[in-house]
Write a protein that binds this DNA or RNA. Structure first.
Lengths: 199, 199
DNA sequence: AGTGCCGATGTCACCTTGCGACATAACCGT
DNA sequence: ACGGTTATGTCGCAAGGTGACATCGGCACT
């Protein structure tokens, strides 16, 4: 996050601080008020008191304004995976539980609002899928760095992500009040049951 | 370029047949020749002897020209899942093996070319992810129609898709020559091993 | 045959996304 | 005070994508 926290000098700053944060906030508000499609980049920039061109210097495209946090998530997850020596699938699940507590735990309302926005736009759903894909790649790489072969690393990561996705969906559901971390543990157990069935 | 080679009735046919197919073919060729980003919709339409506007009547956007087959795949998969009574995960894996034989088996070269195109463009990767998502939803619905609960259905489907994805990646890899169906079976076994580890 | 509707296509005008190139003005070290 | 750096604004443009209307062949009905 960055950015000149300019304090206040005798001369008024030419630029308000934290342009990026203001743009993110403006985008979030507008997406909620009018919906993603009905909001133009010019609208977002205007509300943040900036120019459209500035938006594109800070974000690759309109969708990115909603996904700034995903880099951080990836970092934490990779670190958690790298620091444990549990079996691969267990390591990924444990990493997600840690992330659940460090990042998501206290933000249910925010996450729900964000989720509502994403569900309203196919474009945003695509982007979320892509972020997940990048996260899978990063975690898989972290597992491989521990000496695991490609297939094992990929399967453990993808299975872990599946568990997280299902648990996350339950967590944001309107009637839920269980903590995400617990839901992850439950879903992981269910997955084990399903794949070990004798059919 | 084009056209007016119309055969020869007394009255010239106004339109060449199979506009959609011609556009798909034109798009595929151009994406291979110049790449996805360097190809404009106007280019595609011109090669097919049609107008840009016509393209947008047949495809929602530029990416869709590469994904017309995915509806068919979804159909076959859903049918295969609905017709079996095996345990959920096994049912999904079996369905994918059937699809592997009915749809993919004889088209390795085509699939590889298509895969190369997709890998060259983040936009196309996003779209592929979305298609997979829609497929997951359809298969999950098919499982639920068999009386399974939401979580079990989702986990079985997602795990099955994970298996397919990994097997598919191996299949299209340049050095592979094993049939997709066999690879799916192998990967499914590996997944079972990984999730049942005691850690 | 004539009439008229329907459906596929073309044409035109338009908005938005996203980017390259250049201008501007505050900040910073010297 | 000076020059360089950095963040921002301005301008123009290619391409994606869409709405409205025109065109013309095929088809049904008379």
């Amino acid at each position: 996050m960055s950015q000149c926290d300019v304090g206040y000098h005798r001369h008024m700053a030419r630029w308000q601080p934290d342009a990026r944060g203001r743009l993110e906030a403006a985008a979030f508000e507008l997406f909620r008020e009018r919906g993603f499609e009905q909001t133009t980049v010019a609208d977002i920039a205007a509300r943040a008191g900036l120019d459209k061109r500035t938006f594109y210097r800070l974000f690759g495209d309109k969708r990115e304004a909603l996904f700034s946090g995903s880099g951080h998530l990836e970092e934490v997850l990779v670190k958690a995976v790298a620091e444990t020596d549990a079996a691969p699938f267990e390591a990924v699940v444990a990493a997600f539980r840690r992330v659940a507590e460090e990042i998501f735990a206290d933000r249910l309302d925010l996450v729900r609002a964000r989720q509502t926005i994403i569900e309203s736009s196919p474009e945003l759903q695509e982007r979320e899928l892509r972020k997940t894909g990048s996260l899978v790649a990063a975690v898989t790489a972290a597992l491989r760095a521990r000496g695991l072969d490609e297939t094992t690393a990929t399967l453990a990561t993808e299975s872990g992500v599946t568990v997280f996705r299902v648990a996350y969906a339950r967590w944001v559901a309107p009637d839920n009040d269980a903590p995400l971390s617990d839901l992850i543990a439950e879903v992981a157990a269910e997955l084990r049951a399903i794949t070990s069935a004798t059919g």
